[in-house]
Amino acid sequence: MFGLTIQGTGGTRATIAAIRDKVAEILPEVNRATRSDCPASALKVALQCGGSDGFSGLTANPALGLASDRIVGLGGTVILSETPEIYGAEQLLLRRAASPEIAEKLIDRIRWWEDYTAMNGGSMDNNPSPGNKQGGLTTILEKSLGAVAKGGSTPLTAVYDYAEPVTEAGFTFMDTPGYDPVSATGQIAGGAQVLCFTTGRGSAFGSKPAPTIKLATNDALFRAMPEDMDINCGDVMLGVSLSDKADQIVDAILATASGAATKSEALGLGDNEFVPWQIGAVM
């Protein structure tokens, strides 16, 4: 573990120099890394949603949930996060806990968030964000139900603290804020190689070093942002089955893990989305 502070390292210039020296030290080890064949069971896929709308819980999120089940069926791992955004729907996860200990750890995190928000003058059962409201969501419970749908239906095998290494296969949960860059940073630090990000409002998000696959919840968004959205899930409302859409998502995950560039990678997004969870009120 390498950590330092500007105050304890001699100021801004000295800190930058120390970081540069550390990068130069580890470069030979990084350069020894080469691409090699891996089974699908080695995949760790992060699940994210941001800028939700009234279609999120009907199209992209349940389709991603079925895709999550397929990844788990292949022996891989999926990581659901954003604890404030499952609030009110946590019973759907607790019922799937593989053991009482796993359920209790999730309950502990929920209780921690209740205390955390209360200390900062907030509430876990508040209304959705303005963007979510404009997208058609009326209560935070609607947001939570849609968010949980991304996790599919398989047993919950583990609950992790923020950025903790994810070691259990299957459907897992990581405690993170709902703020997408902070949440995704924790998932990537935990070992996720690919992110699947559903959006109904057009969140322009990318991530590094794990690329982001963007799933549009409605046709209008996909047509409006063709250079940002990788998959259109809006056609589920026109008769495309959730199962077929899940197959398309899994194919995209496998292709991305094999080196295919996502739309956000083509745009060069991701440099500014590394945002660790800082001390203070971050929802």
Rank of each mutant, 00 (worst) to 15 (best):
K133R: 15
T138R: 14
Q278T: 13
F173E: 03
A46R: 06
G190F: 04
A252R: 15
P155R: 02
I249P: 02
D108C: 00
K208Q: 15
N132K: 00
K44Y: 00
G151E: 12
D37A: 14
D244F: 03
T262A: 13
K133H: 11
E90W: 01
P62F: 03
D108H: 05
T198N: 08
W112C: 08
L137N: 12
P165W: 06
F171W: 03
K44A: 10
Y179T: 11
R223P: 00
Q48L: 15
T139H: 12
A260K: 14
A18R: 12
K133C: 13
G280I: 00
P100Q: 09
P62K: 01
V148M: 05
T139Y: 10
A24M: 12
E164T: 12
Q278M: 14
R223F: 08
A189I: 02
A98I: 12
A18E: 14
G280W: 01
I140D: 02
Y160R: 00
W277R: 06
G50S: 15
E82N: 07
N61L: 09
V72E: 04
K44Q: 11
L58T: 03
A33S: 12
N61H: 04
A42W: 11
D228R: 01
L238E: 15
A224I: 10
A24I: 11
D219L: 09
N120A: 13
A246L: 04
L254D: 04
N61D: 13
E164I: 04
N218L: 07
A103G: 15
T15Y: 02
T154E: 09
K44H: 04
A149V: 11
G191R: 08
L267I: 00
V148L: 09
I71R: 02
G146D: 07
P39W: 08
D271W: 01
N126A: 14
S56I: 03
L4R: 09
S203Q: 05
C233E: 05
G3F: 10
E101Q: 15
M119F: 07
E265V: 07
K150Y: 06
T9V: 09
N31C: 11
Y87G: 01
G54F: 05
E29R: 13
V45L: 06
S36N: 13
D37K: 13
T256F: 08
I188F: 06
A204C: 07
G190C: 07
V30P: 03
A18Q: 06
N31F: 12
M1D: 14
A216L: 02
R96H: 11
V194Q: 03
L27G: 04
L238K: 15
V23M: 13
A260H: 11
A118V: 08
A46P: 07
A40I: 04
L43D: 02
I86Y: 00
D247P: 10
T117C: 09
N132S: 04
A158F: 05
I253D: 09
V275P: 00
L195K: 06
S264Q: 12
S144K: 05
D235R: 15
Q134C: 07
E227R: 12
V182N: 02
G191P: 06
A67L: 07
T198Y: 02
K133T: 13
S52Q: 12
I16W: 04
S243Q: 14
L74G: 07
I110T: 05
P226H: 01
A149T: 13
G186T: 12
V194M: 07
I188E: 10
